[in-house]
Amino acid sequence: MITLHHYLVLAVILFCIGVFGVIVRRNMLVIFMSIELMLSSVNLVFLSFSRFLGSTDGQIWVFMVLTVAAAEAAVGLGIIVALFRNKPTLYVDEVKELKG
């Protein structure tokens, strides 16, 4: 018997793997992918509560989160490409000057 708690704990584990990726990895692209993983695990929480409460409203908000994730991916990858053109590195520690 799978309950609400199973889904919530699974979403917590996946979210914390995303947090782990953001803390440990220094590669910009992997940090970005970890953020996508965290967004997706939040979607899992929305959907399990939507199933639990029997209301479709949660699914609408998942739709909004998907839109934000798509916009974020487009703009963020544009920023990464622009950064890479100025300074050919992928490590966040080496990009520390805002000017020059």
């Binding site: 889904y7 996508e36 899992l44 994730a69 798509a70």
Partner: peptide, 30 residues
């Protein structure tokens, strides 16, 4: 998992948008 939560529409969107569009964009940029 989304399908098991009776969110068929969102499950299809997840594959189309995340596994399709966003990840293709990532691999393209890499």
């Amino acid at each position: 998992l989304f399908l098991m939560l009776n969110a068929q529409f969102i499950a299809v969107l997840q594959i189309l948008l995340y596994a399709g569009a966003i990840m293709v964009l990532f691999i393209f940029v890499i």
